Computed example of a mutant assay.
Amino acid sequence: MNLDDRQRKIVFAGLVAALAAVGVYLTVAAPERATGGPDDAPTAAATAPAGPASPPPGIRTAVNPEDFDVYRLLPFSRAEFATAAEVAQRFVAAYATYRYDEEPRKYDERLAPLTTEQLRGELARAHASAGLVAKRRADRTVATGTASLDRVRDIGDNSIIFLVTGTQAVTAGGKETSENKQWAVTVVRDGGSLRVYAFEPADAGQAGDTG
Rank of each mutant, 00 (worst) to 15 (best):
L3G: 04
L3Q: 10
D4E: 06
R6T: 12
Q7S: 13
R8W: 07
R8I: 11
K9M: 09
A13K: 11
G14V: 12
L15F: 13
A18C: 13
A20M: 14
V22G: 09
G23N: 07
G23E: 08
L26D: 09
A29S: 14
E32C: 08
R33C: 08
R33M: 10
A34H: 13
T35D: 13
G36S: 15
G37E: 08
P38I: 07
P38H: 11
A48Y: 08
G51P: 05
P52L: 08
P52S: 07
A53R: 11
P56D: 05
I59K: 04
A62V: 05
V63E: 10
N64P: 02
P65T: 00
F68L: 02
V70I: 15
V70L: 09
L73S: 06
L74H: 02
P75F: 01
S77H: 02
R78S: 10
R78L: 12
A79N: 11
A85S: 15
A88C: 09
A94S: 13
A96I: 02
T97N: 09
Y98D: 06
P104H: 07
R105Y: 09
P113V: 06
L114S: 01
L114Q: 04
T115G: 02
Q118K: 15
L119S: 05
E122Q: 15
R125D: 10
H127I: 12
A130H: 10
A130W: 11
K135S: 12
K135T: 12
R137W: 11
A138C: 04
A138W: 04
A138N: 11
D139W: 02
R140A: 11
A143V: 07
A143T: 06
A143F: 05
A147E: 02
S148W: 07
D150G: 15
R153F: 09
D154K: 12
G156Y: 04
S159E: 04
S159L: 09
F162G: 00
G173Y: 00
E176V: 14
N180E: 15
W183N: 03
A184M: 02
V187G: 01
D190G: 06
G191I: 04
R195Q: 08
V196G: 01
F199W: 05
P201R: 12
P201H: 10
A204V: 11
A204T: 14
G205K: 01
G205D: 05
A207M: 07
